[in-house]
Design a protein around this nucleic acid. Structure first.
Lengths: 344, 344
DNA sequence: ATGAAAGCGCTAACAA
DNA sequence: TTGTTAGCGCTTTCAT
């Protein structure tokens, strides 16, 4: 690798020369130090403008060992929920003059490890970890380097690590209430991937929601999926084979609900005439499918803000256990739910 | 901002001390220089492992003014095509030990300007610009700093700037051929945003495809959308008001096709029984809607590779005009197209 | 084969 | 109020 060729990059020293001051003064002007005579500052600012100077943050990063960058590790860009979150997270970061370093794991352990390594190399000031099913060993280096971490839905905090928990229970309860109001008594649930933590959390939340409104939980109406369309489709087909069918289906996320809709269409089961469907996430595309999806919406912006808050807290209190924040969810009623019609 | 606190970060000097060599030797070992005695190298490697040393690329960046980072500017994370591209682009970058710096513009000029600024600050080695409708003035700084640029579908190249063009015409021709084979003669088109360049390109490509197979172009069957669901929906509703209707609809992208499907559902027009629909992009969710969308697929991975190729070329030949590459597309037949049934 | 040292751009002590 | 300087981590020329 050869050193930068051509004329030297425009830097503070050059600006300083042109302005007839020292680079320290230029630095002070740029950072708004009050210790500079207003006249000098004005003069320097004029030169800055004329030269179109853009400070090189690499210098600062090197000096302070901090990069003003936050890492974000997501499992998958294919689920629209993540891009929507990324967008919001990025916006919140930019508001605070921070950068985003994005990594996707594809739910693969080696990818997680290499993502973590890249985060470390780039000296991120914190990491948001949305990859749920991770082995703690993979993110060990993050702990060692004392990087503030926020997990999503891990519902545990430790030294330097906060967590943002989505309020599934509240959301599902609203949905169950809505369905109950429409006369539904037999509500099925299609969850996430069997055996992983976040799936358990969602299923539990569903059960509690049922309980809260006094409906009975029927294990025959439960299936697992894979948080994706294919899983929702397959699970719904399986559910349709039952003698006694539920009259409404709730799902672990919107993509699963899309699969459910597709399976029902294919099987000529009318939605919402014969079966009501409720998703979870509130992705924008929920409004694009037919029928438009009734779903529990959780605001990506709220999650993003909570993440930043937890990260900031951990940064300021490296040795304490991090914040455990909760983000609410609310029902968005669209067209995939209706009065129950089938009598049994 | 206070300097890094606590114990100094693990760096090459510390490794060198532990290994009883100089930091220069450590650097040589890490970079695989052959000028190190194998015995020494082995010893250093052992220490490296033991200390779990991760080199800090900031030092290198500072020294060389290059960051091994590529910038990617996309208009929107809401259209799944972009996340799918981002994922592929990131993968290709990581293969080559590069980093990704992502920015979204939301089709807003100020956001583009600030994105460009961030790219500059971070010393990106090149920029992929997917924000189609930009004023050249906004990216002027990129030119000034001699940053290699690749645009998508701008179909013009200049000094240091390459372009990757999607082969709309070839893709649309396959689609038209497919529809023609199913007996369709009256094919409508719902384009992108009226007046912007990429919309023109797509509409022209559609016209040429029609021409190529000997079908007539009927302006009454043409509408504009907005590259999103809402636009496709509205345009389709408008089209349905025509006395003579087309029997098939092609669209500027898949999201538009989703809107078309929704409008047709709502208007009780059967797909594909009464109307065939063809999208463009080949996003994964095209397989999730009902009916599954027949579409023209363009491989995000191919686009990503082409971008890197063009970027590499421009990097090596800063003063030449960049490469003008083309990426092919191919028809994916699913369930939204069928034999024409309606006789007029 | 290895080490010493300079320098990339920036900022904060410290000096003037 | 402004300037001088050291040093963040790295690589590479030059010296040994």
């Amino acid at each position: 690798m050869k050193p930068a060729s051509g004329r030297p990059r425009l830097n503070m020293r050059i600006v300083a020369q042109r302005a007839g001051v020292s680079s320290a003064t230029v630095s002070r002007v740029i950072n708004g130090s009050p210790a500079v005579k207003e006249e000098t500052a004005r003069h320097v600012r004029r030169i800055l403008e004329k030269l179109n100077f853009i400070p090189n943050p690499i210098g600062t990063t090197l000096k302070y060992g901090r990069s003003n960058t936050y890492g974000l590790i997501v499992p998958d860009l294919t689920n629209p929920f993540y891009p929507e979150f990324i967008f919001n997270f990025e916006e919140v970061l930019i508001e605070n003059d921070h950068e985003l370093l994005l990594a996707t794991t594809q739910s693969s352990e080696p990818k997680l490890v290499s993502s973590v390594r890249r985060m470390l190399m780039r000296h991120v000031d914190g990491v948001v970890l949305m990859a749920s099913e991770f082995d703690t060993r993979s993110i060990e280096p993050l702990f060692e380097h004392r990087i503030p971490i926020v997990t999503i839905d891990r519902r545990r905090v430790q030294e330097g690590t906060g967590d943002v928990a989505i309020d599934f229970e509240g959301g599902y309860r609203q949905a169950v209430l809505h369905l109950q109001g429409l006369g539904h008594r037999r509500i099925g649930f299609i969850g996430g991937i069997e055996g992983i933590r976040t799936s358990q959390i969602r299923l539990k939340a569903f059960q509690k929601a049922l309980q809260a409104v006094g409906l009975t939980y029927d294990p025959n109406f439960i299936r697992y999926g894979d948080y994706r369309v294919a899983g929702g489709d397959a699970a719904m087909r399986s559910l349709l084979k039952e003698q006694r069918r539920p009259t409404a289906i709730m799902t672990a996320n919107d993509l699963t609900a899309f699969g459910v809709l597709r399976a029902l269409h294919t099987s000529n089961v009318g939605v919402p005439s014969q079966m009501s469907v409720v998703g979870f996430d509130g992705i924008l595309l929920g409004d694009a499918v037919y029928p438009r999806l009734t779903t529990v919406t959780v605001s990506p912006r709220d999650i993003a803000r909570a993440c930043i808050k937890a990260l900031d807290h951990s940064k300021a209190n490296v040795t304490e256990r991090g914040l455990l924040l909760s983000v609410g969810s609310s029902l968005t009623v669209r067209e995939s739910t209706a009065q129950v019609r089938v009598r049994i």
